[in-house]
Amino acid sequence: MVHSLDPRVGRLPTIGTPGMVVPKVPLDQLGTFEVFVQPKEGKPFQHEGIVHAPDLELAYVLAKETFTRRFTCTSLYVVETRHVYVSPTTEGGVSVAAVLPAITGPDGEPLSFELFMLPKRGKQHVHIGTVMATLPQEAMHRGFQQNLHGGKTVYNLWAVRTTDIRFTTPEEKELWLTLPEKKFRDAAEYKGGDKLKAFLEKQRP
């Protein structure tokens, strides 16, 4: 039994041996998923980070809790990290377009890919559009050909097959409607100035 001031801690069941740790096996903390958030309607989706989860559905739920409980959000999507194809990273004003080997995909039904570019080192990847291609490298080339990057220097590019993404459904957009009502998370709700001022005035000799 753990001795604690907290009665809930005191009630924790005895399990295992105090001080002894069973080393975690690989994947004990499950796989990783990349999270993209759209902060406002009309704004591009932006990479926000990762969550560990057993599958896409739970990754979506955990991403919602981790990345969208505080600030405005209109939509969210997740994709397994291993399904993100990553270009080389460049520097010094050199764009990925200059170092990407020219690849033409095999014949076959083209697939839809989402492209995300890094416009500046240190910033986050942002969604720039959708292209049709048979391979991710080909999708990256097509993105440049179609000028989805708006002529900007691209320091890194990600390509993700659209079908690998867990999107937000129209009904799920309601998830964020109540965010502005959660005033207890709003700094502006904690105004103590008047109380403090009255107190200080009362203290004056």
Binding site: G16, V22, L27, L30, T32, L58
Partner: peptide, 24 residues
Amino acid sequence: IAEERGRWVREALKSPESAYVMPL
């Protein structure tokens, strides 16, 4: 204790298709 108590949940959720890839 929290890690020990949660172990069975993580094991139950683990998918054979899971793979660890370093975050990007």
